[in-house]
């Protein structure tokens, strides 16, 4: 009963694509893409370079307008909205851009404070900004870099600052654009662990666009344990820690040339016989 009740509560739609298509000149960027994301869900979008993953993410927050189809963000259609109206809705979504997207002319602390100071709807009192920034940076373990500039940090550190900036205003939905692209495997795992930690400490819905299957695997199979403060395999806490611990809540989506060619659980993904989909799933010996 309780699970059924929590399911109905959790079906609140955060992001919905309804047959969205977009062409860049002659090339197809997205070809009638439809899906729906609910609260507490983690959605991992896999696909080769140029398969439309980043475009999908940018359309989701109205940075690019689709040629046809509708996009709903928090049950509100954003396809026809003017830029000024979009600003309010966007402030409820955190975004990590591919290279971090940090403003390189201002310090790390100012970067992280940016969403707090520039949001039109959730104006944060000035005296609360500094503690929140400090907390967000402590979360990604970069508190000591507050007065430095983005160029002084390594690629992995910039990515972590980007995460801090994406989550500082505690949005219910966070979009990650290739969070591990161009990073070494160890740093990549650190970044994904942070994203999982963020998801499980706040019950945030995540849309993660990536080329690395391991990223999705980590999100699907590991949970951050709030009491021990470590990542643990999902099975060991038996689904007792809220939305995040239900493996079914991690949905995989595979994109190919602008189309969604697969949507389902990790298990279904690994069982798929499609050659393109199999390319993303490493074969274990």
């Amino acid at each position: 009963m309780t699970s059924a009740a929590s399911n109905t509560a959790a079906t609140e739609s955060l992001l919905r694509f309804d047959t969205v298509s977009l062409n860049f000149d002659e090339t197809v960027a997205l070809d009638s893409v439809s899906f729906e994301m609910c609260a507490g869900e983690t959605r991992v979008v896999l696909g080769a370079a140029g398969s439309g993953k980043t475009t999908l993410l940018k359309i989701a927050i109205g940075l690019i307008r689709p040629d046809s189809g509708r996009v709903y963000l928090f049950d509100q259609e954003i396809t026809g909205l003017k830029e000024a109206q979009l600003f309010d809705i966007r402030s409820k979504v955190g975004v990590l851009f591919q290279e971090g997207g940090l403003f390189d002319s201002i310090t790390i602390a100012e970067n992280v404070a940016y969403p707090l100071l520039n949001s039109r709807t959730h104006a944060v009192p000035l005296d609360e900004v500094e503690p929140k920034v400090r907390e967000a940076l402590r979360f990604v373990e970069l508190e000591q870099t507050m007065e430095q500039f983005p160029a002084e940090l390594s690629g992995g550190m910039r990515r972590r600052v980007g995460i801090a900036r994406a989550v500082v205003s505690e949005p219910p939905l966070v979009l990650y654009d290739s969070p591990t692209a161009g990073l070494d495997p160890i740093t990549a795992t650190t970044i994904m662990a942070l994203i999982a930690k963020e998801r499980d400490s706040q019950d945030i819905a995540n849309l993660i666009v990536t080329q690395r299957y391991q990223d999705g695997q980590l999100m699907a199979n590991f949970r951050y344990n709030r009491t021990s403060g470590h990542l643990e395999p999902a099975s060991s806490n038996g689904g007792a820690a809220g939305h995040g611990s239900d493996p079914a809540r991690t949905v995989f989506m595979v994109m190919k040339e602008g189309r969604v060619v697969f949507e389902g659980t990790q298990h279904e993904l690994e069982a798929s016989q499609d050659a393109y989909i199999q390319k993303f799933v490493p074969k274990y010996s």
């Binding site: 940018k58 927050i61 940075l63 830029e83 000024a84 600003f87 309010d88 966007r90 402030s91 979504v93 975004v95 851009f97 591919q98 290279e99 997207g101 940090l102 403003f103 390189d104 940016y114 969403p115 520039n118 949001s119 039109r120 900036r165």
Partner: peptide, 17 residues
Amino acid sequence: SMKVTEQIDAMRALGTD
């Protein structure tokens, strides 16, 4: 430079015109 490093997009995403 801001455009190619996605800072313009980031700015829009963070609610600034």
